[in-house]
Amino acid sequence: MSVENTQGQLWEVFIQSKNNLPYKHVGSVHASDKEMAIQNARDLYTRRSEGRGIWVVPSNCIVASDPQDEEAMFDPSDDKIYRHATFYKMPEGSQNI
């Protein structure tokens, strides 16, 4: 089935809920240009003071890892517990470390 696309392109929306917090993906909107994308994102995702900042990114510009590669990509770091501070034994009585 093919119907002509008159709905604009797809944009992914990222919202910063407060100053100094990271931008978080919240969903997507349709829009035909940048301004419309920001406006639609604002109307759709910040109706209850959810945000102080918005990023919109054309969905086709996002490069994502393949879910099939999940284990190969991420499991190797599971066993490297020496990358965490809790791995190390501190001498009894040591302070401020």
Binding site: T6, Q7, G8, Q9, S32, D33, M36
Partner: peptide
């Protein structure tokens, strides 16, 4: 929609 597409 037509106008928005043309503008885009």
């Amino acid at each position: 929609r037509k106008a928005a597409t043309a503008y885009a």
